[in-house]
Amino acid sequence: MLEGKVKWSNSEKGFGFIEVEGQDDVFVHFSAIQGEGFKTLEEGQAVSFEIVEGNRGPQAANVTKEA
């Protein structure tokens, strides 16, 4: 699992980007967020995730919010 911080997200469009130190930003779709209820990410929020190869390149999977 990698750790990063949410660079920005748009809940209306359903995606955002995660900033990882020393690496390119990672695309995240809201379907990759683990948990119940409305899935949102806040700018600056710490997250853990895996990287998978998506249709348009690397993207985050199994995203969990850190406490």
Results as ranks from 00 to 15, higher is better:
Gln59Glu: 12
Glu53Cys: 15
Lys7Ala: 03
Ala61His: 10
Gly37Pro: 07
Ser48Asn: 09
Gly16Asp: 00
Asp25Asn: 06
Gly16Arg: 00
Lys13Ile: 06
Met1His: 10
Gln23Trp: 12
Ile51Gly: 02
Phe17Ile: 04
Lys5Cys: 13
Ala60Met: 01
Val47Tyr: 03
Asn10Cys: 14
Gly54Asn: 06
Glu3Val: 15
Gly14Leu: 09
Gln45His: 07
Pro58Met: 09
Ala67Gln: 12
Lys65Cys: 09
Gly57His: 04
Gly54Phe: 05
Gln45Thr: 11
Lys39Arg: 10
Glu42His: 13
Asn10Leu: 06
Gly54Ser: 09
Leu2Ala: 07
Ser48Leu: 13
Lys5Thr: 11
Lys13Tyr: 08
His29Cys: 12
Glu43Ala: 14
Lys5Leu: 08
Val52Arg: 07
Phe49Glu: 02
Ala60Arg: 00
Ala67His: 12
Glu50Ile: 14
Val20His: 04
Glu50Tyr: 13
Phe30Pro: 06
Lys65Pro: 12
Glu43Tyr: 13
Ala46Tyr: 15
Glu19Ala: 14
Ala67Val: 13
Ala32His: 07
Phe30Ala: 07
Val63Gly: 01
His29Arg: 05
Ser11Thr: 13
His29Leu: 07
Glu42Asn: 10
Gly57Trp: 04
Lys39His: 11
Gly16Gln: 01
Glu12Met: 11
Glu12His: 10
Arg56Asp: 06
Phe49Leu: 05
Trp8Asn: 03
Glu50Gly: 03
Thr64Ile: 14
Ala61Thr: 10
Gly37Tyr: 07
Gly35Met: 08
Gln34Thr: 14
Arg56His: 11
Asp25Tyr: 05
Arg56Cys: 14
Val47Ser: 01
Gln45Leu: 08
Asp25Lys: 02
Lys7Gln: 01
Gln34Phe: 09
Val6Asn: 00
Glu36Pro: 13
Pro58Val: 08
Gly4Ala: 00
Arg56Phe: 13
Gly54Glu: 04
Ala32Cys: 08
Glu12Lys: 13
Gly14Asn: 10
Lys39Ile: 10
Glu3Cys: 15
Ser31Asp: 08
Glu53Leu: 14
Gly4Asn: 01
Val20Asn: 01
Phe30Lys: 08
Thr40Leu: 09
His29Gly: 05
Asn62Leu: 07
Ser31Leu: 06
Gly35Ser: 08
Lys65Leu: 15
Glu12Asn: 10
Ser9Thr: 15
Gly14Ala: 09
Glu3Gly: 09
Ala60Val: 02
Val52Lys: 07
Glu42Phe: 12
Val20Thr: 07
Gly16Met: 05
Gln45Met: 12
Lys65Ala: 12
Asn10Gly: 03
Glu66Val: 15
Glu42Tyr: 13
Lys5Arg: 13
Glu21Phe: 12
Ser11Arg: 13
Val26His: 01
Val63Trp: 00
Gly37Cys: 11
Glu50Asn: 11
Ile51Lys: 06
Val47Cys: 04
Glu12Cys: 15
Trp8Ser: 03
Glu19Leu: 10
Leu2Cys: 10
Val28Leu: 07
Gly35Asp: 09
Gly22Thr: 03
Gly37Arg: 05
His29Thr: 03
Ile33Gln: 03
Glu43Pro: 15
Gly22Cys: 09
Asp25Ile: 05
Ser9Lys: 13
Glu66Leu: 15
Ala60Gln: 01
Gly54Gln: 04
Gly22Gln: 04
Lys5His: 09
Ala60Glu: 03
Arg56Lys: 11
Arg56Leu: 09
Val63Lys: 01
Ile18Pro: 01
Ala61Pro: 00
His29Ser: 07
Val20Trp: 08
Ser31Lys: 03
Glu53Gly: 06
Lys39Glu: 10
Gln45Tyr: 06
Val26Ile: 11
